[in-house]
């Protein structure tokens, strides 16, 4: 597997990650990500098919909580953190498009 990452890929990933990159950054990230990916490629030199993927170090299941109400946060506290709010709401610039 050789995934040479090109600048178009980098731009696409940046959009996915909600980052904007300058032209210099685009070049820098392209070369650095490519180098890191080369290091990562060593994994693929090994036949790992007999090793099942490990999602998580814990093997426990069912860590559940009782359906009991707990005290939350006061609205004043919550909205005081907000960069922008209006009345009892968080406020954001207009939204273009659905998720």
């Amino acid at each position: 597997m050789t995934n040479r990452i090109d600048q178009e890929d980098v731009a696409h990933i940046a959009q996915l990650a909600r980052l904007s990159l300058s032209d210099e950054e685009l070049i820098e990230y392209q070369s650095t990500l490519s180098r890191i990916l080369e290091v990562i490629e060593v994994m693929n030199s090994e036949d790992l098919s007999s090793y099942p993927p490990m999602d998580h170090p814990l093997e426990t299941v069912n860590l559940l909580r009782d359906d009991v109400v707990h005290q939350g946060l006061d609205r004043e506290v919550v909205l005081a953190m907000a960069p922008s709010s209006e009345d009892e709401y968080f406020r954001v610039p207009r939204i273009l498009g659905a998720p």
Binding site: R65, D67, V69, H70, G72, L73, R75, V78, E88, Y89
Partner: peptide, 23 residues
């Protein structure tokens, strides 16, 4: 349910905005 899926905030309809919230 009485509470939300992942926290103890009340799962209620029609509350005052941003009052059934937690971290």
């Amino acid at each position: 349910t009485a509470t939300k899926l992942f926290c103890g905030c009340p799962n209620a309809f029609g509350e005052e905005p941003n009052t059934s919230v937690c971290p």
